[in-house]
Lab assay of single mutants.
Amino acid sequence: SAEDNLGPLPENWEMAYTENGEVYFIDHNTKTTSWLDPRCLNKQQK
């Protein structure tokens, strides 16, 4: 699965689903949400 390739979410991040079944990500560090997987963003920065 995609999660196996990317590994676990960063600390204090949570994956959630909208009512429509779309995946989004919650950053409890900054109390924000994102459509972008933080694991993908980390890979792009390196």
Rank of each mutant, 00 (worst) to 15 (best):
S1E: 05
S1C: 09
A2F: 09
E3Y: 12
E3L: 09
E3Q: 13
D4V: 08
N5G: 09
N5F: 13
N5I: 09
N5Q: 09
N5Y: 08
L6W: 07
L6Q: 10
G7M: 08
P8L: 06
P8A: 11
P8G: 07
P8Y: 06
P8E: 08
L9T: 03
L9P: 01
P10C: 00
P10D: 02
P10H: 01
E11F: 13
N12L: 07
N12D: 08
N12Q: 10
N12W: 07
N12E: 07
N12T: 09
W13V: 09
W13Q: 09
E14V: 07
E14H: 06
M15N: 02
M15G: 04
A16R: 07
A16C: 08
A16G: 10
A16W: 03
A16T: 06
T18K: 09
T18V: 04
E19N: 12
E19R: 10
E19K: 13
N20T: 15
N20D: 11
N20H: 14
G21V: 02
G21P: 01
G21N: 13
G21F: 07
E22Y: 03
V23A: 13
V23W: 05
V23Q: 15
V23L: 15
F25Q: 00
F25L: 01
F25K: 00
F25G: 01
I26F: 03
I26S: 02
I26V: 14
I26C: 06
D27F: 00
D27L: 00
N29G: 12
N29C: 09
N29L: 11
N29V: 11
N29H: 11
T30I: 04
T30V: 05
K31R: 13
K31N: 07
K31H: 04
K31Q: 10
T32H: 03
T32Q: 07
T32A: 07
T33V: 06
T33C: 09
T33M: 04
S34T: 14
S34Y: 00
W35D: 03
W35R: 04
W35Y: 15
L36G: 06
D37N: 04
P38N: 00
P38L: 00
P38E: 00
R39I: 01
C40H: 15
C40G: 14
C40P: 15
L41I: 11
L41T: 15
L41P: 12
L41C: 10
L41W: 14
L41V: 14
N42P: 12
N42K: 13
N42A: 13
N42F: 12
K43W: 11
K43C: 11
K43L: 13
Q44W: 09
Q44A: 08
Q44F: 08
Q44R: 15
Q45D: 15
Q45P: 15
Q45T: 14
Q45A: 12
K46G: 13
K46L: 04
